[in-house]
């Protein structure tokens, strides 16, 4: 039961993130929802890498050569870096939309439709 706790947190965080994206009309809040969703995915990846009694894959301080595979950590790190790039690009879009449209309400950012 206790081991499932991270995965329950993943589901909860994903739902919070997706609900924010769907319900909130403010662009910045939508972007925050995306960030929350990304964190949920990162948490999912890192929880996959957990092995009970495993040894951290740091060569210099490991007591033996039996270490856990560092792949999930590497994946998470990559995913975080991509997430930072995504957030930066989205926020810069929001800045331009604010300058040009004078609003960040998605109900009013709909000049392209039909």
């Amino acid at each position: 039961m206790f081991w499932n706790l991270p995965f329950i947190a993943v589901v909860a965080l994903s739902l919070i993130g997706l609900a924010t994206i769907v319900i909130k009309k403010n662009l910045i809040k939508i972007f925050l929802g995306i960030t929350i969703f990304e964190s949920a995915v990162n948490l999912f990846l890192i929880s996959l890498g957990y092995r009970a009694g495993g040894i951290a894959p740091i060569f210099t301080s490991a007591p033996s050569t039996d270490m856990v595979l560092a792949t999930p950590q590497a994946l998470t790190l990559t995913s975080i870096v991509i997430g930072v790039a995504t957030s930066a690009l989205l926020l810069s879009f929001a800045v331009i939309i604010w300058k040009k449209y004078g609003t960040i309400n998605t109900d009013e950012i709909r000049r392209l439709r039909e």
Binding site: V22, K25, R110, R113
Partner: peptide, 17 residues
């Protein structure tokens, strides 16, 4: 069909989900 393309971001995400 034409009004279904509302142009609102939230609707598009909702369609996807």
């Amino acid at each position: 069909i034409v009004p279904a393309h509302t142009g609102v971001l939230n609707d598009y995400v909702l369609w996807y989900l």
